[in-house]
Amino acid sequence: MDLIIAILDKFPAVSSVFVITPDEAVAHACSNRTDAPPCPAHHLNQFYHNATRLIPESHEVCLSFGPTCVTLRPLPLNWVLAVQHQPDCSVSALDALHKAAQTLPKTDAQRADEAFSILTPDAVMAGALGAWLVPMMKLLEEVIEAPPQTLFQKALNEWIDREDPSFKGLHHFSDLIAAAITDTNKRSHYAEKAKGIFTSGEKTNKGKTTP
């Protein structure tokens, strides 16, 4: 979807984009405004597939409403891309959106897997947050002067239970680790040093670099 949003920024004649499933649910919606817009019309998936029966090998249906148009194009798994645009919208904009949307359709099983996927501590450590978490674990080891894995893993599990791990929530995670350190001096020492890690990380993150 990030790529679609970038394309929307590039082509102001396109106002919104919708990805519609075979059962007419809008799986994705975005616009060049900040809010996600409602789909301007209904039953567009069925309409696309019935309309394209009129011409062999047709691959595009455009509904004109005067000042605005909705162009429909096919996606894998019988999903449909609906692009709301001005009448003078370029074909290259539609082509770019069509290409970017090819990977969005998912089977029911894939969607169910995504909905019920379990986030594990290993996955969090292996992801983008690992660049901050590894230094925090090393710091913990320095402060408690003992293997940090058990304490760190426990705090990480608790963090995952409480919220979706994100850069913004790193200070919550740090608080959880600090709370698990029994020695008050070590606890405050850890809290102070850890703050340095994710605060400096915050600054460098804006420059798209990791600590």
């Binding site: 301007p40 019309a41 209904h42 309309a51 394209t52 009129l54 011409i55 062999p56 090998e57 047709s58 691959h59 595009e60 249906v61 455009c62 509904l63 004109s64 409403f65 005067g66 605005t68």
Partner: peptide
């Protein structure tokens, strides 16, 4: 919906 029915519909192949 707030839209009036389409003025025209174009179906396109290559």
């Amino acid at each position: 919906t707030p839209l009036a029915p389409p003025i025209s519909v174009s179906i396109r192949s290559a």
